[in-house]
């Protein structure tokens, strides 16, 4: 496998082609916060918490580190002011789900209206049920700001007896609702 050279937060490292920035950072002990990511599932790139600043050919931009695969000569910064600003906004928007992170990023409260459900729509349960359980009992219903989580009525019974996705849940919706639907 081809090895590529890159720099993350000032540290030089080598990693295999096909590695994501998130994985590469982890390998040298740099922790990038995530919400919708799980090592056992396909990268999804939806929560944007893991965004980092990359510089390539003198062009700097923001990318989601969980999906962006490393390139030779890439310079990555995981904790710049620009990145922190985004994370702080996400913490506020998903308030109070990310109170653990809130402290680290110095967010004491949210300026926004609270979400209507405890669900963060991170999709971990949906993807778990689809990719690993291969059942598709949980699905995203609707789109845009009306998007919500729902359980397929015909499969509610199996859902109530499975619970395998519970430990992935970031907001609590599936934990509360998987039994009730049946």
């Amino acid at each position: 496998m081809k090895m590529l050279k890159l720099q993350i937060d000032g540290q030089e490292l080598q990693a295999q082609k096909g590695t994501t920035i998130l994985q590469a950072a982890k390998s040298i002990g740099i922790d990038i916060p995530t919400l919708c990511h799980s090592e056992n599932l396909k990268p999804y790139g939806a929560c944007r918490l893991c965004m980092v600043e990359i510089t390539k050919d003198e062009r700097t931009r923001l990318v989601a580190s969980c999906v962006y695969e490393i390139e030779d000569g890439l310079v990555v910064k995981t904790n710049t002011e620009r990145v922190k600003k985004i994370r702080r906004m996400i913490i506020e928007l998903l308030w109070p789900s990310l109170t653990g992170l809130a402290k680290e990023y110095d967010v004491a409260s949210s300026r926004f209206w609270p979400k209507e459900t405890e669900c963060n729509l991170c999709g971990l349960c949906v993807r778990y049920c689809s990719e690993i359980r291969k059942l598709d009992a949980v699905y995203f219903k609707g789109r845009g700001i009306d998007r919500e989580l729902a359980i397929v009525p015909e499969l509610a019974r199996e859902c109530a007896f499975c619970h395998q996705c519970h430990e992935l849940c970031t907001g609590g919706w599936i934990v509360y609702h998987s039994d009730q639907a049946f």
């Binding site: 049920c129 689809s130 059942l135 598709d136 009992a137 949980v138 699905y139 995203f140 219903k141 609707g142 789109r143 729902a150 397929v152 009525p153 015909e154 499969l155």
Partner: peptide
């Protein structure tokens, strides 16, 4: 109708969950 979705799911071997999410999208 739900029975139509079930039938499509069975015939095309596409999960019901996917059909529901398409139908609401």
């Amino acid at each position: 109708p739900r029975h139509a979705l079930k039938w499509i799911s069975r015939r095309l071997k596409v999960s019901l969950g996917r059909l529901y999410s398409i139908a609401t999208f």
